[in-house]
Design a protein around this nucleic acid. Structure first.
Lengths: 208, 208
DNA sequence: ACGCTAACGGACGCCCCCGTCCGCTTCGCC
DNA sequence: GGCGAAGCGGACGGGGGCGTCCGTTAGCGT
């Protein structure tokens, strides 16, 4: 009887460990290219293992997703940290917008996981809260002439990520390119300008 | 009096005609709120008819969708016509952006049908081509100082519609509100400005 | 009022995905 | 090299959507 220690740090047999890696590689590739709705069996097929093996390592899809996108979750924090560290807050803000759009464009499934797909995935919720808090601080600093428009609110960033998700191009390359242009347009929209009309109110999108 | 809608050659019996209407009502409501992936049976259930009746009237989902969104398809043309008719081309362009965003936000499934869901739905393809052509003309006129930025291309509009689709709020009301703010931001992004950096190239999105 | 037939919907078979069980294989420790 | 257990995957039952068939109902014309 093996006691699972919460973080399942017990050593796997060599072949099992190898299969685990290949499952994760397959999941990363498929989730990135086609989103989260790929069947579990297709992940297994691509990894060259049976369905049972997949379910043994990752009993629920949420666990597989969480593990597959661990790097992206870390990247998410890194992006906002770099934005905050930038000497020019507005430039830092722009960087956050660009990098975030690219990250989400490259990994289609990550957006779904990050936003709302698994409400009780604490890893994602925590990263989201951290990022939002950091961007909130960055936005506070970036507001002003030649910077972020004063009526920007955090929900606008949520809005942008949701909108960016809508870009379902056929290939990943096209999606990333489109997303890059989208980010540039978004930055233009967020830039303070003397001539902008008051924005319509935004509904509550994120509970934070 | 029994009026046969459109080009259906044979007159339907009164109860059949009634069922047809209720099927379309159900389809409109469900497609608008939840998109096109609602099962055919759920449409039938909501309409209070059996599956067979639904399939008898609309043998394929595409036919049901096309008929359900006939009004929106017409609205699509109306919107660009009104935009073209506006004395100020830039104001007309802004109107097109706002109205289009709202239309797509109100009818979630319409976007899918309009964009790419049914490649061989000639009605949608024709409306899309017409709209794009008209907007192209409108954009040509709207470019210039205090108007549309010169590096705007038609694919940017496609990009906007795709992005707008990404806004999946819980309720239709919230979605429409969010979409309204989104449209305002988009207009800001499209407005000519002395300080905008060159945009990254956009990949081919629409074959037109 | 009556009968013809359009119209209805329950039920069927098909396929795909899900999550699990179990008999066989193979790792790895002694 | 041998043995125990970790690990494997094929196979199974369940559920749901799909499109169709057919026995029954009820509109409507006479």
């Amino acid at each position: 009887m093996r006691v699972v220690t919460g973080h399942l740090s017990h050593t796997l047999r060599a072949d099992a460990q190898d299969n685990r890696e290949r499952i994760l590689d397959a999941a990363r590739a498929l989730f990135a290219a086609e989103g989260l709705r790929v069947p579990m069996r297709e992940v297994a097929r691509r990894a060259g293992v049976g369905p049972a093996t997949l379910y043994r390592r990752f009993p629920t899809k949420q666990e597989l997703v969480t593990e597959a996108f661990r790097d992206q979750l870390r990247a998410c924090r890194t992006i906002v940290d770099e934005g905050l560290a930038h000497p020019d807050p507005w430039a830092g803000f722009c960087l956050v917008v660009e990098k975030t759009c690219e990250l989400h464009a490259r990994h289609l499934g990550f957006t779904e996981a990050f936003m709302a797909a698994y409400p009780d995935a604490m890893d994602f919720a925590a990263a989201r809260a951290y990022s939002l808090k950091a961007v909130g601080e960055l936005a506070r600093r970036a507001k002003g002439a030649d910077g972020l428009r004063p009526d920007f609110v955090l929900d606008d960033l949520i809005l942008m990520i949701m909108a960016n998700r809508g870009i379902h191009a056929l290939s990943t390359a096209a999606r990333v390119a489109a997303s890059r242009r989208f980010a540039a347009l978004v930055i233009q929209a967020f830039r303070a300008s003397p001539e902008h009309a008051p924005l319509p109110p935004v509904p509550r999108l994120a509970s934070l």
